[in-house]
Design a protein around this nucleic acid. Sequence first.
DNA 1: AGCATAAACGGACTTTACCCCGCTTCATAG
DNA 2: CTATGAAGCGGGGTAAAGTCCGTTTATGCT
Lengths: 197, 197
Amino acid sequence: MPFGKPRAERADAVRNREHLLKTAREMLAECGADKVTMDGLAERACLGKGTVFRHFGTRAGIFRALLDADERRFQEQVLSGPPPLGPGAEPIDRLIAYGRARIAYLLDHHVIARAALHRNQPAPVGDPSVTQLHIRVLLQQGAPMPNIAGIAIQLTAALEGPLLLYLSRPDTDEDEPAEIYALLADAWQTLVERLTR
Amino acid sequence: MPFGKPRAERADAVRNREHLLKTAREMLAECGADKVTMDGLAERACLGKGTVFRHFGTRAGIFRALLDADERRFQEQVLSGPPPLGPGAEPIDRLIAYGRARIAYLLDHHVIARAALHRNQPAPVGDPSVTQLHIRVLLQQGAPMPNIAGIAIQLTAALEGPLLLYLSRPDTDEDEPAEIYALLADAWQTLVERLTR
DNA sequence: AGCATAAACGGACTTTACCCCGCTTCATAG
DNA sequence: CTATGAAGCGGGGTAAAGTCCGTTTATGCT
């Protein structure tokens, strides 16, 4: 049986990973993202450093793993939650709702998301196979136009770029998060409405 | 004379910085971005490590400095070059030209730009005070609309996001740069045209 | 249960960014 | 021309990321 079953993951490995994630979340809450170090995490979790690397590969991998759970929940809302975010509403309305929800999500998670960014690796959010595809499909349904693929790339960046690239120091910005949210969410709506008119 | 003259920069410092930048460019061309290390650069330039840090502050600072010269040249083209990129054309045409030129610029520089990205620091390109402002002004002139500020943020991200966030491994992508350019540049044009209609 | 095997673990080791502080050198005033 | 003080320089030191490999342990089979 060479390929069929790659032999299920070992129980202790699962336990350890969960424990590491829990510990990481604690450290994150207590001291902030850049106090979460590989050595520190290993020690606090009472595990070897090698184990941490085995599970996450890189420091950014920890944050990617932390994002993953929430990201999954978010995508679930999109795929099967109530409209207009979930299925059932008009495509354009869903697109607007998607952007608003996504901006809120990224504002909540932008510290982690930013920490998940890593040299020589694509961005940890807006994985082309999910966010971008979703935008593309909705756009196609609601307002067919030439070069949908390119537009979808750019709309994805329009959503996720600001929070990954520019708002990296929310504490030093005097703007309240709520104001930033309103600014970007309204801009997104305007953008989509005018684009698909 | 407490404030008027902060005492001009020392000649040897200028010489050293220039030499460091030159050496960095060489190493970059020969071995790629992540072979450019602080120690390596210092040694090759026959200078102390401390000197490198004094000039650039952080590893990313080197790349930021490398970008700076080209960025300045780029902005010059925009501010006083021939239309439609420079002044003289219709605002919307300038906006389209700006995007196309910017995408080409970022494709050329995306390895450096990516390397200039740094923990806890805003993105090294698309500095709000330049790119974003320019987009905002052109948009205002060519197609006034509500929430220009937000839209400008998102258009900036739409331009710069893809190249910083997603296309981080151009060698592993089977697409030719020329195709990527065409895809994004055309998408930008479509985006702007439909947005300002 | 006992065994074989691959997966998981641990922690020493290497590399690299970044800090620090005593020493040197330049630029300016007298 | 020399003194002086601030800017610049150097390189050793620290901490954290990431690698490696010998050891341990869970699991599936007999």
